[in-house]
Amino acid sequence: MSLRVHPVLFLSIPRLQRIVSARMRLLVLGSGAGGGVPQWNCRCPNCTQAREERDLPFSKNVFRHTQASIALREAGEPWLLVNASPDLCSQFARQAELAPPEGAMRASPLAAVALTDGQIDHATGLLFLREGTELTLVCTDPVWKSLGSSFPIVSVLRHFLPVNRLSYPAQVGSLLLEALPLRAGPAPYEAPSGESGHVVALRVTGKKSGGCVVYAPGLPEISSELADFVAGSDCLLVDGTFWSEEELAPMSRERRRSILGSHLPISGPGGTLEWLAKLPIPQKLYVHINNTNPILDPGSPPAKEVKEAGVGIAYDGMLLSLYSPHS
């Protein structure tokens, strides 16, 4: 299985119709880390550049990034939302494909919401889905517990609509969802816990298309289990929070310790770029990019280094189509 772009002129009409009907669509709603770019309280160079883009059309934005989230679906099915950021409303408003289905005055384009963790940046957007008629969440046991207690979003939502929960592995329509627990602890506002599953990498496989996507916006380590988990995927979206530890210097010691325990740097020995450059995966992208990260500037040496390694940098509104060439 691999990501393919076929010249339409060389395909028969029946062949082209089969490809279109079998594809999996992946939409990057947001590509920034917590707070997005610009952050409300920051005057770093990237945030300054992002503010200068405020009057430009969305398609012309280079530095502006909302908080990380993606959506996936196969032909004829509703969307699976992966993580619900605080920017959910503006992200949905910008995407025609996420409008309510035709023929209904009020309806949801979503089949379910899958969570890679229960952090504020990835779960707060759930509150904006309260006006639906039903909500299905796919998450691990620790995340489900957190959303019912220390960060009680589910308790609030249940005043407005039924909330159902699925555990991993799960099937949503024709999409199979599998999770790999990562070595990361609970959110800062929770009690310490040795329980596994506070943070996961997510693999989504389409039964119709054969496409396979792995999404890991928080990556604390590269393990043999992770290598097996991403093997054979068509598209891999990986934690690109920061380029090097130098970006963390202005932060408090506690904040630096928290970030280093949850996110690997891109550069240097043992960094994610060294790993990604060797992976035989057709599409490799950085996502969850912090406002301090120099790769946000496409003209910077770090951005060029990423590109030369065969890795892309995700942006808001990025749309990919994946399918098996044998479908």
Rank of each mutant, 00 (worst) to 15 (best):
F92Q: 13
A184F: 02
S258Y: 15
V138C: 15
D121R: 11
G118Y: 08
N164G: 00
G261Q: 11
V238Y: 00
L319R: 14
G30Q: 13
P282D: 06
P325Q: 13
D239I: 00
P280A: 05
Q119N: 07
P38D: 03
V306Y: 02
A75G: 12
G35T: 05
V62K: 02
S146G: 01
A93G: 01
V213M: 12
P280H: 08
S21V: 11
L180F: 08
L176V: 09
L127F: 04
P57V: 15
V204G: 03
V199L: 12
G103C: 07
G240V: 04
A50M: 09
I259F: 09
H263D: 06
H198C: 05
E221I: 03
V8Y: 04
L236A: 10
L161P: 10
N41K: 13
R94P: 03
V213A: 12
V20F: 13
G76W: 04
E190R: 02
L248S: 06
S146H: 11
I313W: 01
N290H: 11
R54D: 15
Y168N: 03
E247I: 01
S69E: 08
G32A: 13
E225M: 10
T140G: 07
F242N: 05
A170G: 12
V138I: 15
F58P: 03
V204K: 02
L219S: 12
P86S: 04
L166F: 10
N290V: 01
A22L: 01
D239C: 08
V311T: 04
E131R: 12
M251W: 15
G270H: 10
C139A: 15
A216Q: 01
L127P: 00
S324Y: 09
F128T: 07
L166V: 06
R94H: 10
P186N: 06
H263I: 06
G30F: 04
H198P: 00
S149Y: 03
L236F: 14
N164F: 08
L279S: 12
M1T: 12
P7N: 06
E52C: 05
E247K: 02
L110F: 15
A314H: 04
E131P: 00
S327F: 02
E53D: 09
R23F: 01
L26M: 14
E274R: 13
L296E: 05
S146Q: 13
F160E: 07
V200H: 14
R106N: 05
R255N: 05
L157E: 12
R23D: 05
G310S: 08
E221T: 09
L177A: 07
E77T: 05
V200M: 10
E131A: 11
V238S: 01
N291A: 15
R73I: 01
F242I: 04
W243A: 14
P280D: 09
V62D: 03
G132Q: 10
E225W: 09
R158H: 02
S267G: 02
E246K: 06
N61R: 15
H326Y: 14
L319T: 14
S233W: 09
F151C: 02
A84H: 01
I153R: 08
T136P: 02
G206L: 04
S108Y: 10
K278N: 09
A277D: 02
T205A: 15
V214T: 13
Q119F: 13
E77S: 09
L11I: 01
G317K: 14
L296H: 10
W79S: 14
L27W: 06
L264V: 04
G312W: 04
V156P: 02
G148I: 03
Q39M: 11
P217K: 07
